[in-house]
Simulated scan of single mutants.
Amino acid sequence: MFKVIYKITWPNGKIYVGSDLTDTIRYFGSPNCRLIEADFPTRESRRDITIRREILWESETATNAEVLKLEHETIVSLRANDPTVGYNRNPRFRAKQA
C-alpha cells in the first residue's frame, strides 16, 4: 500500500497539502470548511467547481512518522499555511521578519 503526500488546488488558486496513509482515491483532506466557504460565498461561485488533486510524493516503505514529517515540510515549503496561498493552518504561518 502506498502512502502519499498530495496537493489540492481550488479554482481560486489556493492550495491544501495533506497526507494519506492509505492512498484512498476519495480522500481530499480535511481543510477548514469555513475558510473555503468564505472564498466561495455565493451560490453562483459554488455552482460549478473543479478541484485538482496531485500526488507530490509516494512511498510503499515510509513509516507514518516519516510521511507526517514530510507533509509538514511540504506545507511549509509550498507556503500552504500562508492564508494568502493556502488552506492549511498547521503549522502556524509566520511571516519572515525583514
Rank of each mutant, 00 (worst) to 15 (best):
T84W: 00
Y27A: 09
T74R: 12
L78W: 10
L68D: 01
E58P: 06
C33G: 14
E44T: 10
M1V: 14
T42M: 10
N88H: 04
T22K: 14
N88Q: 06
S30D: 10
R79G: 02
T63G: 04
G13S: 02
P11D: 04
V76A: 10
K7A: 02
E44W: 07
D20Y: 06
T63N: 01
I8Y: 03
R46D: 05
D23H: 14
T63K: 02
R26H: 13
R52H: 15
E71A: 07
T9I: 03
L78T: 08
D39V: 00
D20C: 13
R53C: 10
E66Q: 15
S45I: 00
P41N: 09
G13L: 08
R94M: 12
W57R: 10
R94E: 13
T22E: 15
S59V: 13
K3G: 04
F40K: 01
A95R: 14
G13P: 06
I51G: 05
V85T: 12
A62V: 11
L56I: 15
K7S: 02
Q97L: 13
S19G: 01
D48P: 05
T24V: 14
L56A: 08
D82Y: 01
D23M: 02
E60H: 09
F40V: 11
L78P: 05
I8N: 07
V4N: 01
E58G: 12
D39P: 10
D23T: 10
V85P: 05
T50P: 03
A62N: 00
V17S: 00
R94D: 05
N81H: 03
Q97Y: 14
L70C: 06
L68N: 12
N81D: 04
P41R: 07
S59N: 10
D48G: 10
N32C: 08
I5C: 05
P31Y: 04
I25A: 11
Y87E: 07
Y27E: 05
V17H: 04
Y6R: 03
E60A: 04
P83F: 03
L21N: 09
F93C: 00
T84K: 11
D48C: 09
I15T: 07
G29Y: 01
R52T: 14
A38R: 15
I55G: 06
R34H: 15
L56G: 02
V76T: 11
A95D: 12
E54N: 11
L21C: 01
S77H: 13
E71T: 04
A95E: 15
F28D: 03
N88I: 03
L56T: 07
R89V: 14
L35P: 07
T74V: 08
I8S: 11
E58M: 12
N64M: 03
F28Y: 15
P83A: 04
K7W: 00
R89D: 11
V85N: 08
N90D: 11
E60T: 13
R53Y: 08
S19Q: 12
V85H: 06
T22A: 15
K3N: 09
L68T: 01
S19W: 00
D82C: 06
R46L: 12
R92C: 13
E71P: 02
